[in-house]
Simulated assay, not measured.
Amino acid sequence: MHVALRWTGRTLIARLAGDLDEHGAEVFRQEIERALRRRAYDHLVVNLQEVRFIDSSGLGALLGRYRRAREDGARVSVAGAPPHVRAVLQLAGIPQWIPLYEDEAAALGAPGEVGRR
């Protein structure tokens, strides 16, 4: 799993590439936690465009970031999930908590509604 991080204002964009499995989920968690300890944020955008595979560990990592963001008064969005990844996210009910967007631009342009669900 490769995690590329980029700040734009108070938004952290995390671009993931590879498998979001047990190992990938741990890499994702560590990278995000390290970045969020250094700087305040309002929005975490997780770009899954280059994710080939996601399992329950990956789903747990996403929900963990969602819980952390709620505690911090921030929100989380998922962008660019390929069809096979999007299907897993939907089957697991992730959109109930974390909105899914077609791409980063759509996620960045969405109005902020922390705690809306």
Rank of each mutant, 00 (worst) to 15 (best):
A61P: 00
L12D: 00
L108M: 14
L12W: 01
T8D: 13
A107Y: 04
I94M: 12
G60F: 11
E104P: 09
H43E: 13
S57D: 00
G93P: 07
S77I: 02
V88K: 08
R38D: 09
P99G: 11
A107D: 03
D103T: 09
A4C: 08
T8S: 14
R39L: 08
G60Q: 01
S77Q: 00
A92C: 12
Q30E: 14
L48G: 11
L16V: 11
P82R: 14
H84C: 12
D42H: 13
Q49G: 14
L36F: 07
A87G: 08
S57L: 06
N47P: 11
G18N: 06
E102D: 15
L59W: 05
V27F: 11
G18M: 06
Q96T: 15
H84M: 14
V76W: 05
F53S: 08
A40W: 08
L89A: 10
L108H: 07
L100H: 07
H43Y: 08
L44I: 14
L63V: 13
G80A: 07
R117Q: 03
E102T: 15
E71M: 08
M1C: 13
A106S: 14
A40G: 12
D42M: 06
L89H: 06
Q30D: 13
F28M: 11
E71W: 04
A61C: 01
A69K: 01
Y101K: 06
H84V: 12
N47W: 02
G64K: 03
G80I: 00
A105D: 12
N47R: 13
D21P: 10
Y101P: 05
G64V: 05
V88E: 00
P111Q: 12
E26L: 14
L36D: 00
A106V: 08
P82T: 00
A110R: 05
G80K: 04
R116I: 11
G58W: 02
E71A: 15
E113K: 12
L89S: 07
L5K: 09
R65Y: 04
R39C: 07
E71T: 11
A17V: 06
M1E: 00
I54A: 09
A81F: 08
P95C: 10
E104K: 06
Y41F: 15
Y66C: 05
I32T: 10
D72Y: 01
V27K: 09
P99H: 08
R68V: 01
L91N: 04
L5D: 03
W7F: 07
D42T: 12
R67G: 04
G24K: 05
D21H: 10
V85W: 04
